[in-house]
Amino acid sequence: MSDQTYDEQGLRFDYPPDWVLEETEDGAVRTVAVQAPDGAGFAVIQTDDSRPDPAEIADAALQAMRDDYPDLESRPILETINDHAATGHDLEFVSLDVTNSASIRCFRTPTRTILALGQWSDLDGEETAQQVLAVVRSIEESE
């Protein structure tokens, strides 16, 4: 089964066809979330037309996760996503006795800053982890 493609207001990414999509908008900030049908794996993509610094946004996302999970382990990451240098963090933390992983990536384009947060648990299996990471790596501008 082939992926669906989200392509709205200059943001495009692919996601699994059975995942649920939600959108919200608050001024210059637009948030699009896709979630596995069982609710465990998900990706949240946020665009900000005011173009804040990607490192600051990635660090703020890390701090928000740390506030919820003080014992989380994090590792800084630099990655290229569709020709954009993305900064971020890979995370591991325990919630309800289950080990969870998360990926924070943030990059700036000429028109916006894009933050992507993907999360999955050990219970989901490798397929969900790969699906979440594929969503994040497929992000691109479409205008």
Rank of each mutant, 00 (worst) to 15 (best):
A61S: 09
M65A: 13
L91W: 02
T80Y: 04
S142L: 11
S101L: 09
T5D: 08
E8S: 11
S138I: 06
T31I: 09
Y6M: 08
L62T: 05
V32Q: 02
R112H: 05
A129S: 14
E23L: 10
D68P: 04
E79D: 13
Q130K: 09
R51W: 03
E23G: 03
D48I: 06
E73Y: 03
A116W: 00
L78A: 13
T113D: 14
P110E: 15
S50Q: 14
A55F: 08
V132E: 02
T24K: 13
L78K: 12
V136L: 14
Q63W: 10
A43R: 03
E22W: 07
V44Q: 15
I45R: 03
N82A: 02
D68Y: 04
D68V: 08
R30A: 07
Q119C: 05
G41P: 04
G27R: 10
F93S: 07
T111Q: 13
R66K: 09
T99D: 12
I45H: 02
A55E: 15
I45S: 04
A33T: 15
L117V: 15
E127D: 15
D38K: 12
D90N: 06
N82Q: 05
L115D: 10
A61E: 14
T99W: 02
L133K: 09
D97W: 07
I139R: 05
Q131W: 00
A40M: 13
Q4S: 09
R51I: 14
D49C: 07
A33F: 04
T99M: 12
L11A: 04
D122T: 12
G125E: 00
L21C: 10
A64M: 11
Q9E: 13
A33P: 06
I81G: 01
V44M: 12
I57V: 15
V98K: 01
Q46I: 12
D83F: 06
R66L: 12
E79H: 06
V98W: 03
F42H: 10
A86H: 05
D59Q: 15
T99Q: 13
V136Y: 00
T47C: 07
T5I: 15
D90W: 00
R137T: 10
T109L: 06
A64E: 15
F13E: 10
A102S: 13
A116T: 03
H84N: 14
S95P: 02
A43Y: 01
D122Q: 12
T128K: 00
T99L: 14
G88S: 02
